[in-house]
Simulated assay, not measured.
Amino acid sequence: MTDNKKKFTTSPILIAFKEENQSRDTYGGGVANIVLQGMHMRRPDATNDTILVFMHPTATLDTLPLPRELARIGVPVLCCGSRYPHNDSALIMEKVLVDLGHYIKYARERLGYKNVVLAGWSGGASLSVYYQAQAENPTVIATPSGEPVDLSGLQPADAIMQMAAHSARARIMTESMDASIRNELNPDDKDPKFDIYDEKNGPRAPYEAGFVEEYRNEQVARNRRITTWAFETLERLKKNGGPDQERCFVTHGTMADPRWLDPSIDPNERIAGQCYLGVPAVVNNGPIGLARFATLRSWLSQWSIDESKANTALQGPGVTVPAIVIANAADDCCPPSHTDTIFQSLGGPKEKHIISGANHYYIGQRDQLNFTIETIITWLKNTRMLKGIPD
């Protein structure tokens, strides 16, 4: 006989609000109307002590193993979709902070939870750090492209989790940029010195330290060239057509990190020749590559290595609540150097754990998933976020 108490329910959450005087960057619903869709997952016998709030800038996480397993064992979970579901081409990180603020308010005032823990997984990690830093001490009053944003009313969370995380979307993407591309309008115009996917004449792994340093410098230089172009183009468009003018564009070659071919660079237990999105050489110019489609404003907010404020190295010192950092040892998305940056940056009490053998998603890894769950539960109890879970 099945114990229904151990089944969790998944209830849709719908949050709607208005933002006046905003240019529309999502499809449908009118200029001022913002609609958010989330999923509340909990067992009927779970307490209202604490809820874990998962939010990724563009993904909805309710189908992944970790949040579902947490809900199944009796820890309530809220998986939050931003106003940019499954499409980050026009995403503004500062607007996603506003969205997350509405979910946290909803969790406390409508769902009745006492404690809210930000569960930052993967790309949601730097988002949650950015949110918490601004909720504790708001300093950002505009997006990197200069549009005003009001972050003064964000409710801070009570604790924060960083799991299988990178320290910034702009950093992980920059470290993935194809340094061989010389012409943004023609991805076939390449510097052979840096073409790591040229199997006949290109550099071969393992790479010398001097080559990696030069490659990294060229990646940053390429990111900065795009950023300069974005600012110049925005300024020209504003002069010619008004303040709300935009430009959409493609960034070619954004999965060419030497780490994926040479596991001795930033080493962990990952397998050489693959990444979390598949075969790196295929993803490099495929439709799902990082930052493949963007607007000028979105590039500056999300992907610019110098201008994006969603950066844990920048925001982390402002986070004073308890934090746990969990790294997956076989992660082929978020490497150890990012884990180190996150842990060193956070300003409050913190602890770090490494899950041996775990890949980015815990797909097919029940043992690693269970160990991660146990680690999270122990931390929640030690920080008094959670008194216990149902039997």
Rank of each mutant, 00 (worst) to 15 (best):
Q344L: 10
V321Q: 07
I363D: 14
V140F: 08
N48I: 05
Y276N: 10
T2K: 09
V98M: 08
P336F: 07
T58K: 02
G101L: 05
L261C: 02
M55D: 05
K5E: 12
G278T: 01
A221V: 03
W303K: 01
L111F: 04
V117R: 01
F211Y: 05
A281L: 04
E136D: 12
A16Y: 01
I172T: 13
A168F: 05
C248S: 15
G388H: 06
V283S: 03
R270W: 06
I172F: 06
V53K: 02
E214K: 13
D306R: 05
P12K: 06
F249M: 09
I288M: 15
A310K: 00
Y106G: 08
A205R: 00
D188I: 03
A125N: 09
I34A: 01
Q22N: 11
E269C: 04
T174E: 00
L234H: 01
Y106A: 04
S167V: 01
N359T: 15
A209P: 13
V325F: 00
N370R: 11
I15H: 10
I34E: 03
T228L: 09
T174P: 01
L64C: 05
L61T: 11
L70K: 00
N48M: 07
F371R: 12
E218S: 04
K309H: 14
Q22E: 15
